[in-house]
Computed example of a mutant assay.
Amino acid sequence: MKLTLLLALLLCALQAANTRDEALEDLANAEHRFAATSVKKGFHQAFVEHLAGDGLVFAPSPTNGKKLHAEAPESKALLTWYPAYADISSSLDWGYTTGPYAFKAAPEDTATAGAGFYLSVWKKQPDGQWKVAIDMGNSFAPNLLKEEVYRPAPAPENKPAKGTTEGLLTQDVKPVQPYFEETLIYRHGAYPVKYKDVIIEPAANVRYSNLGHDLSPAADMAYTYGRYSQPTAKGTETGYYLKVWRVLGGEWRLVAHNLVPERK
């Protein structure tokens, strides 16, 4: 009897793992299709086809990305990218991807004009298709680009706990952010780095003003976005942020923290 029960539980666990792995692979494939459309039809059309109807991009303020790119003038520029990392909520219909991108003024150019790392949150639509809900990229010098190997996030060891909206928004505006070892930190002009590898502790004098948020249906992952300001030696830096969160140890913790300053 005990052996039968144990085998049944093991089978359920394996089926759940397979379901999650398949959903995560499906999400990564959606990102690859998005990038392939950019090469085939141009990046404006790619965003039109792969953003949700209410999907946001930062230009520099948060704006409807589908409308922005649909109305943009035709461009010969080539924007390429690929996912280096992806994770998914236990609801299997909400997740995020991140990876390097490169920009050329024309496809035939040998020189890369711009580069950076993107952060995109995806939501599965009623028709079963993955669409981008919000997207923000940081930028750095093209010579900092390096080849990344795709790594899907491992499945959580324990059943994810649920977080609350109140708890999320409280954490979002704290000057000292709830990082953990694997938090990916994006900063303008620099290649993203994990918190465990930072040399200088991230500034604790940043002030955040939330403009929006969304939780996965399972309430185990979320994103927040808004404005930030930070005193610097050259004056006050202002810009926009996008953060991705996961419930770890019963609390909301940052898994990705992106700050993009406004251009002066």
Rank of each mutant, 00 (worst) to 15 (best):
V255L: 09
A161C: 05
T238E: 14
K234T: 13
W245E: 02
P178Y: 07
Y150R: 00
V198N: 01
H213V: 07
A233G: 09
D172V: 10
V206R: 12
G249L: 11
T232R: 02
G212P: 14
P192S: 04
Y208N: 00
V176M: 05
L248D: 05
K162G: 05
E166L: 08
K159G: 04
P156F: 12
N210I: 13
P261Q: 00
E262K: 13
I199H: 14
G249Y: 07
F180I: 15
R253T: 12
E251L: 07
V260W: 02
V149H: 08
N143A: 09
V132C: 04
L248M: 11
P231C: 04
E262N: 15
G239Q: 02
G235F: 09
A190T: 00
E147M: 10
E262I: 14
K243C: 04
G226V: 11
N205T: 15
T236G: 03
T224N: 06
A133D: 09
P202F: 10
Y150E: 01
Q171C: 07
N158A: 13
I199K: 14
T170Q: 13
L211M: 15
P217T: 05
P261W: 00
E148Q: 15
A218D: 06
N258I: 12
S139E: 11
A222Y: 13
A218S: 12
T164G: 05
K243Q: 10
P156R: 08
Y240D: 00
Q171W: 07
Y208F: 15
A155M: 13
S209L: 12
D220F: 13
K234D: 08
T224W: 14
L169K: 04
E237Q: 15
M136Q: 13
Y195F: 15
D220V: 12
V132H: 01
R227E: 15
G167D: 04
A155S: 15
P160W: 11
R263S: 13
P152E: 03
T170V: 08
